[in-house]
């Protein structure tokens, strides 16, 4: 008789549906605040991928200190968001993507 092992599955409500990005900038962006940066990222994404994807992607800027930005995106649109950063050099200059993770804790530590 074959014994089946019970596999513990994460409930759909508990699965990680967001992705967090830590981005650092080469230029000095001290004159910008969270709202201005969020507007720039969202407008740029809309320009490259359109209105409907922008509304589903739920891009938000969580924190901005010492030229380091923490962004939250829906996991399905992470690759599209990264490809949209190709066109952001005119507004924000050179950007480095330091880390990507599915929890905020692992991003900050």
């Amino acid at each position: 008789m074959i014994k089946f092992k019970k596999i513990n599955v994460i409930r759909p409500t508990l699965r990680h549906k967001k992705r967090y990005l830590k981005i650092s900038c080469f230029n000095d962006l001290s004159s910008y605040d969270n709202k201005k940066l969020a507007y720039i990222f969202i407008k740029n994404f809309q320009k490259t991928h359109g209105l409907f994807k922008t509304s589903s992607a739920n891009i938000s800027v969580l924190d901005f200190k010492n030229n380091i930005i923490i962004i939250r995106v829906n996991k399905l649109f992470l690759n599209d968001f990264l490809s949209s950063l190709f066109y952001i050099n005119n507004d924000l200059g050179l950007l480095f993507i330091e880390k990507q993770s599915f929890t905020l804790k692992s991003l900050i530590s």
């Binding site: 080469f26 990264l82 490809s83 190709f86 050099n89 200059g93 050179l94 950007l95 480095f96 993507i97």
Partner: peptide, 9 residues
């Protein structure tokens, strides 16, 4: 420098 781009992007 602004014309450069990271690998992931």
């Amino acid at each position: 420098l602004n014309s450069l781009c990271s690998k992931q992007v």
